[in-house]
Every structure is written in C-alpha cells, then in structure tokens.
C-alpha cells in the first residue's frame, strides 16, 4: 500500500491585525491568532478516499488549502508522495469558472499550461477525452457557464481538474446545494473516476451521507482539532467521541419511522481566536469532566485503526 498523502503535526494559525473598523467586535480585539488547524495528522493510501467531516470553522477547508499549497503551514507538514499532482474541485462551480469564457476555453486553459507537449489537435483530442470521462456532450465546448445547469457545471469543473492528469483530487463540498438526482449522478461519477483512473480523494464535506458512500477513511474535526479518525465503517457505525455522536445524530434521516428526538447540542462552536483550553469540545460536551479543561486529550485506539481523542473514552474498556 503506497501512501499518497501524509500530514504530520499540521498546524495553521492566522494572525488578525488590529482592526480598523469601529464596531465593538473590532474594538475589543488587539493582535489575535486564529487557531484554524492544530496538530493534525493523517495518511491516505493511494486510490483511497479520506473524508474530513465537521462543521463551519472546524478547519477542514484550511487542511485542503494546505494540501493544495495555497497557504503555508505554521508548523508540521503535509506532503503528496511521488508525483505532486493535485487539483481542486471547488464547492461552487459558478464562481470557479469565468462566465465570460466558453466551457471549451476552461478545459483548454490547463492543457496550455500543464501539457506544453500537445499541439492544437492533441489538445482537442484531450478535451474530447475529458468530456467523455465526465459524461458531457461535445456541444458544451461552445456554451457558456450560464447556459448549463449546476450539476453539469460541476462536471465541467471536474473535467477541468482532470485535464492536468492529477493523482490527487481535493473535493471541497463537491455536492453541496445540489438537487437529489443531480447529487446522485455526481457521486456515481466520482466513484467511477476513482476506480477507473486510480485517483486519491481528499473529500471535504458536511454531507454525512455522501461521505458514507465515498470514504474509506474518515477524520472528524472540531475547532481545528481531530477528535476522531479511522476506518469509515467504524467511525460511522460506532462513533466514540461525544462530538462525532452528536454530529451523526443531528443529521436528519430520510425515514419518518426513525424520527430523532432532535435534542441537539446546546450552544454554538466557540471562536477559534480564543479556543477553550484542554479539549476544545468541552464547552458543549454533555459528559464534560474537570480534567477536560486542563489537558488536551491524546488520541487513543478505540478499535483497530480507530483513534479517539477524549478523556472520557481514554480509560473506558472499549
């Protein structure tokens, strides 16, 4: 098993300068640090999918940006083994494409940069290949982003990402805000492409049902920390960390026979500027202990290859 992506002690802090604004939010703060990602580690085997799940502000998109080299880590490392070829499929295809240029232009552009060996005919053939791979008709080349549907446009961004023949795709909320039937066909496409091209995916998502279908490994993040990680079936079927349990429990199940109590977590995610000491989840945790405020729990095995960072579970038999 070759490792495609490896992160070790990955940390990213952003400095907030003294604000120029006049609201109380600005006045109250001097020089502050946003703890976006703190000491995150994982490995993804080649051809596998790692899903990072968590809510807004948990740091999952920052991990994606670090992998893409769009921002430098404050500490630690994130590396792609072998050929460093990584591409991004962004959440919002409308803002990912230039609406004044045709879809053909969007697909040719990466070839001009990454495949200088190709002549015009070579590029044309490659563009046709990309359309075939993503199930798009040839007449799309002359169309503009505004003329096609959201699902089709997301296929275009996938085709564009594949143009440079990446080994790793970062999928940042690839199916968010899409309709059920469109989402289904995109998930199928992502499965097919991974199997046919041997791609490795880093999937950033808040959609648990999509993560369940695509992921081999799962990383659950909360406020910059990894709270639980492991084999997808283990994490989804036997979640151990109180946050993972709450998160999975708050996902509405499309089955009226399984109505949830909807007794959700109280409160909201605290600010990453001044995160809670010790375990960052302690301010909302229903099982909080005094020592949760004192030390950050270390990740321990709660099953084979299943790690949980929680004081409560650290000494429990399972």
């Amino acid at each position: 098993m070759t490792i495609a992506i490896e992160a070790e002690g990955l940390t990213k802090h952003f400095s907030l300068k003294q604000g120029k604004g006049s609201g109380p939010w600005f006045r109250a703060r001097g020089m502050r640090t946003v703890h976006a990602v703190d000491d995150v580690g994982f490995k993804v085997a080649s051809g596998e999918t790692l899903a990072i799940i968590g809510e807004s502000g948990c740091g999952k998109s920052t991990v994606a940006r670090l992998l893409l080299g769009l921002t430098e880590p404050t500490a630690g490392s994130i590396t792609i083994s072998g050929e460093r070829r990584v591409q991004l499929v962004a959440q919002n295809p409308w803002s990912a494409l230039n609406r004044r240029k045709t879809i053909g232009h969007a697909l040719n552009q990466p070839l001009l940069i990454h495949r200088p060996d190709l002549d015009k005919d070579g590029r044309e053939a490659r563009v046709q290949e990309l359309l075939d791979l993503t199930g798009l008709p040839s007449d799309f080349l002359l169309r503009y982003p505004a003329d096609v549907s959201g699902g089709e446009l997301q296929r275009v961004t996938i085709a564009r990402a594949l143009a440079a023949q990446p080994r790793v795709l970062v999928l940042d909320e690839p199916t968010a805000s899409l309709d059920v039937s469109v989402k289904a066909s995109l998930v199928n496409l992502l499965c097919d492409l991974r199997d046919d091209l041997g791609l490795t995916y880093l999937l950033i998502t808040h959609e648990i049902d999509v993560a369940r279908l695509l992921a081999d490994q799962v990383l659950v993040m909360y406020l910059g920390h990894v709270v639980e990680s492991g084999d997808a079936d283990q994490v989804f079927d036997n979640p151990v960390h109180p946050y993972t349990r709450s998160l999975l429990d708050s996902v509405p199940v499309p089955d009226p026979r399984r109505r949830k109590e909807l007794l959700p977590l109280a409160g909201e995610v605290p600010s990453a500027v001044d995160p809670p000491s010790g375990c960052r989840f302690r301010t909302r945790c229903p099982h909080v202990l005094p020592k949760c405020a004192e030390t950050r729990p270390t990740a321990r095995e709660s099953g084979e290859g299943h790690l949980t960072a929680c004081h409560l579970t650290a000494w429990s038999p399972s």
Binding site: S56, H206, D249, P252, K260, L262, L263, P264, L265, E268
Partner: peptide
C-alpha cells in the same frame, strides 16, 4: 446551517 445548528432550529 450546519448539522447541529440545523437540528436546533428544527427543534
């Protein structure tokens, strides 16, 4: 909204 906040609002 995020999942846990969605659950709060639905409740």
């Amino acid at each position: 909204l995020d999942a846990t906040v969605q659950a709060q609002v639905l409740r």
